[in-house]
């Protein structure tokens, strides 16, 4: 098992898409921040003026500056959300190449050990997700410090917890992308899925389903609570003032990620063990 993991890690660090996707993610964050910095600054200034006009007192100023002012949670969290796009694309390309170039024929003769390749690709998904989210978080913090007026590192711990929750969800999403690519032996389905997700088409479809299911169940049902990718894009955001809610959210993210990580990997292992190598 260790040899196969090492092989895939060796390949990952020699794959251009590993560096290209990370670089594009960083460039995207830098560009978006640069374009949006002035409007972000204007927004915070306007909010501060509005509160000053209505309320007087130092305490309110402090609340405005920290909780509602320019801090990592209020400024940077949305920029780290792009990571899901690159995790899906990278894993689709990485796993797809293993089959498309035919290298699988050289190493997958031993059917009883094919699950090792599934494990190795999962390790790559976890490592890439970690690198991506840490890089995205770091770059957004640096950009915020450079471009956002009065930016403070208040609630940095909450921001890091947010990143950790996103990392867990990305591991599951990366495994999904790998599974989809293995199943179809094509990168197209994973890329189509992430396109639909990032353009909110999936969210529109699920909200339609949610409304009908809620009517039928006579209680609110939200699909996004049960799928890692949707939870990542629509639901997962920690609150700087509510640690109980944060704990519940993190636990939910962790359980959701673990369950689907296992599901996708078991399904993927079963798939590659049973099917012929072409």
């Amino acid at each position: 098992m260790f040899n196969v993991i090492r092989m895939e890690l060796h390949r990952m660090f020699r794959t251009r898409s590993f560096y290209i996707t990370l670089a594009v993610n960083v460039i995207l964050i830098v560009l978006l921040f640069s374009m949006m910095a002035s409007s972000i600054n204007e927004g915070f200034a306007a909010a501060k003026n509005s509160v000053r006009q209505n309320v007087e007192g130092l305490e309110m100023e402090m609340i405005l500056d920290n909780r509602y002012g320019p801090n990592p949670m209020n400024v940077c969290f949305s920029f780290t959300g792009w990571s899901i796009l690159f995790v899906v694309i990278f894993m689709a390309c990485f796993v797809g190449r293993f089959y498309k170039d035919g290298f699988c024929k050289n190493v997958m003769g031993s059917r009883g050990y094919r699950f090792r390749f599934q494990m190795a690709q999962s390790v790559c998904a976890v490592l890439y997700s970690a690198v991506n989210i840490i890089l995205a978080g770091t770059v957004s913090l640096l950009m915020a410090k450079a471009l956002i007026q009065s930016f403070t590192f208040a609630y940095l711990d909450i921001f890091c917890l947010n990143l950790f929750g996103q990392f867990l969800l990305l591991c599951a999403v990366g495994s999904f992308s790998a599974f989809l690519t293995e199943w179809t032996r094509s990168t197209v389905p994973a890329i189509v899925y992430i396109f639909l997700l990032s353009t909110n088409i999936v969210a529109m479809m699920t909200s339609y389903i949610d409304s009908h299911l809620s009517d039928w169940l006579h209680k609110e049902f939200v699909t996004a609570n049960y799928l890692p990718s949707l939870y990542f894009t629509n639901q997962f955001l920690l609150d700087v003032s509510d640690s109980a809610k944060n704990n519940a959210m993190l636990l939910h993210a962790a359980l959701l990620s673990l369950v689907f990580f296992v599901i996708y990997n078991v399904a993927g292992a079963a798939l590659i063990t049973k099917s012929d190598v072409k």
């Binding site: 794959t15 251009r16 190449r97 170039d101 035919g102 290298f103 699988c104 050289n106």
Partner: peptide, 11 residues
């Protein structure tokens, strides 16, 4: 084994 086309990473 070498079955049909060689399985090689072209990059």
């Amino acid at each position: 084994s070498l079955i049909e086309q060689p399985g090689l990473y072209h990059h």
